[in-house]
Simulated scan of single mutants.
Amino acid sequence: MRTEPKPTRLDRIFARLDREPQRPVLDVPRMTRHRVVLFGATLAFYLTIVLAVVTTSWLVRLDWQAMLFRPYQQWPEIHAFLDYWVVLGQRGPTAVMVAAWLGWRCWRQHTLRPLLAFGAALLLLNVTVGAVKYGLGRSGPHYATEIGSNEMWHWFQAGSDIFPSGHTANAVVTWGILAYLAATPGARRWLSALSAVLSLSVGLTTVYLGTHWLSDVLLGWAAGLLVLLALPWLEPTIATAEAWLFTRRDRLRARLRAGRGGALPMPEPVLLTPARTPAAEEEPAPLREIVPPAAARAPRTSALLAPGPHTTRSERTPVTPAGSRRPPHPDRMARGTAAPAARPLTGG
C-alpha cells in the first residue's frame, strides 16, 4: 500500500502562504500632494539646519551652551535610566524587535511587503545618513577642540561622524515604519504620535549624555522623516521584489518535491528516421520510436529467480503432471493393480 509522504515544516510554511488571506491586505500609501508638500518642507528644514551649522550661526552657539550646561551633572539621578532608554535608538536591538513583529504580520497576512518595506527604509537610511555623516565630518561634544567652533571637516579624527544623529534618525524610521504599515487610519495616527515622541526623547537623551549636539538631533529627526516620506516612491520596487521572491519560492518547492521522488513529467517520444542506404531505397523503412532511457531500461531480476525469460501464469502452457499427486502410503494401492482377496472375519 502506497502512503503519501509526511509534509515537512517547509511544506507547511508554503501551504500557509498559499492560503487566502484571513485579514485585509494593507493599503499601499501613495505619493499624494499632501505628502509631496510635507516632503518639500522637511527637505527645506534639513538644508536650513545644515547651512546654519556650516556658517557657525546662532544654532552653533546654542549647541555649545547646551554642552557646557552638562545636563548629566545637573540631573544625575536619571542617568542610569537614560542609559537604557537610549537603546531604543540603536539600530541593532530595535531592528530585531521590529523585524520580529513585522515577520509575524507577514505570516498572518500572507505577504512579504512589511519586511521588504522595512528593509528598504533601513537601506535608504544608512545610505543617506551615512553619506552626510562622513561627508561633513563633524566632531562630537566629547571630541571638541575649540569653544564656539562648528567642529566641521574633521574627516580623519575620532568621533567625527555624529552629524546628523544616527540614534534619532534610526528611532524615527524604526518606530515610524509601524505607523506607515498600519492597517487603519486610527492606528496610523496613534503610532505616528508614539514614534514622534520616542524619536525626540531618544534624541534629547543623547544631548543629556553629551554624545550629540542639539543640532545633530534636529537634523537626525528631519533625515528619518524624509526616509519615511519617500517610501511610497519605492513601493513599485517592493512589489517587484515580492513577486520575484514568490516565483523563486515556487521553483524551490517544485525542486524539493521532485527530489523526494514526486511524479516528474515524462519526455515525449522522439521519432527519428533511419539513415537511407542503397538497399533501403526500394522499400521505406518504418519509423522507430525512441523511448526515454528510464522506460527502456530492462527491469532487474532477483538473484533468487532462475535465469531466462519469465512469463506470467496466463501465458504458460498447461501441463498434466505424470503419476499421482497423492503422497505414498503403506495401505494405499497403486492404480492399475488388482486388490487382494478379502480375508474372512473371525470371532464369536
Rank of each mutant, 00 (worst) to 15 (best):
A144S: 15
A254W: 11
V28D: 03
N126M: 07
L178Q: 06
I78E: 00
M97C: 10
L225Q: 12
L38P: 00
E282Y: 11
A15S: 13
G119A: 14
A100G: 15
L102I: 02
M97I: 15
P299W: 15
G323M: 08
A193E: 07
V202Q: 08
L304V: 03
G119Y: 00
V50S: 02
A295F: 07
F39Q: 08
R313I: 05
W107N: 02
P286M: 00
P71V: 04
A243Y: 00
A196V: 08
L228D: 08
W233R: 05
A121K: 01
R35M: 09
W85R: 00
W175L: 05
N170C: 10
V129I: 07
L245S: 06
D18F: 01
T128Q: 11
G210L: 14
K133C: 04
G203K: 08
R16I: 08
R332N: 03
P114D: 13
A66L: 13
S165W: 01
I13K: 11
T8R: 12
L198R: 01
T273M: 14
C106V: 05
P293W: 06
R260K: 14
I13N: 03
L272S: 11
R138P: 04
P309C: 10
V53D: 03
L204T: 02
W221Y: 07
P328S: 04
W107L: 05
Q22S: 14
D11R: 03
A117N: 02
S199Q: 13
W175P: 00
A121R: 02
L17Q: 13
T240K: 12
A295P: 00
T32R: 11
T205F: 09
P286W: 01
G203V: 04
A258S: 13
W244N: 01
P327N: 06
V132C: 01
R343K: 08
R16S: 15
R91Q: 15
G92D: 13
L125N: 15
M152E: 02
P76C: 10
V28G: 08
V53C: 02
A322F: 07
P340H: 04
L287T: 09
W155A: 14
E315T: 07
G336A: 10
L204W: 14
V197N: 05
S199R: 04
A230Y: 06
Y208V: 06
E77T: 07
L191G: 02
T206Q: 10
E268S: 07
A298F: 07
S165N: 06
S302E: 09
G186T: 11
A182Y: 06
L256I: 14
L225T: 05
L191T: 00
P318W: 08
L218K: 01
A279S: 15
A241L: 03
L10C: 03
A306Y: 13
P318D: 10
V28I: 14
R33L: 15
T145D: 14
A171W: 02
V197Q: 08
L125W: 01
S324M: 10
L116Q: 09
S149V: 07
H142Q: 14
P267G: 12
A338G: 12
G103W: 09
L26C: 04
T301M: 12
G336S: 14
W233C: 07
V87F: 13
T206E: 10
P274N: 12
